[in-house]
Amino acid sequence: MLEEKDRKIVSALADGIPFVPRPYAVLAEKAGMEEEEFLSRLKDLKTQGILRRVGAVLQHRRAGFSANALCIWNVPEDRLDGVGAAVSREPSVSHCYSRETAPEWPYNFYAMIHAHSREVCESIADRISAENGLGERKTFYSVREWKKAAMRYFCENH
C-alpha cells in the first residue's frame, strides 16, 4: 500500500500540472513537502510502475481524429496474450484489454481504434482481424463524448 506522503502526491496531482515555470514546486506545496522530495518520490513511483507517465492528452477529435471505434472480438482464451501483445503494437490503438464475458455476450477482447475517417478505421480493424485470425467483430463508433476526465484518486465523493 502507498505511504501517506505518496498518497498526498497522487492527490495533489489530481488537477494536472500547472503551466508555470516550476510546476512541481506548486504541487509540492499542496502536498506539504519540498519540491526536491516531491520530485524524488515521484521518480520512485515511476520506477515502481505506479506512475505510468507524466504527459499530455489531446482532445483527439479537435486534433482531427474523428473516427473512434470500440472494436470487440471473441478470442480463444489460450491466444489472448499473444493477440493482446500484437494489437498493442498498433499505433492507432490506444486501449487494449481482455474482459470477462457475460451471458449472451461471448466477446472478451477490446481495442479502441482512432483514425481520421471511418474508412481508415475499418481498414485498420479488418487488418487486425486478418493478421490475428480473428472472427466476427463488433464495432461501436463514438457518437459523442459525454465525459472524459482523469481519475481523481483518493478524493472520491461517492
Binding site: 500500500m1 502507498l2 497522487v10 496531482l13 488537477d15 494536472g16 500540472i17 503551466f19 515521484l42 513511483l45 515502481q48 510502475g49 505506479i50 506512475l51 505510468r52 507517465r53 507524466v54 504527459g55 499530455a56 492528452v57 489531446l58 482532445q59 479537435r62 486534433a63 472524459k148 482523469a150 481519475m151 484518486y153 483518493f154
Partner: peptide, 18 residues
C-alpha cells in the same frame, strides 16, 4: 483552444488499489 485536454500524471489504477 481545446487542442490540449490535460497535462498531468497518469497512474496505474491497479497499483493504487482500484
Amino acid at each position: 483552444d481545446g487542442y490540449l485536454r490535460r497535462l498531468g500524471a497518469y497512474f496505474d489504477s491497479d497499483a493504487l488499489g482500484y
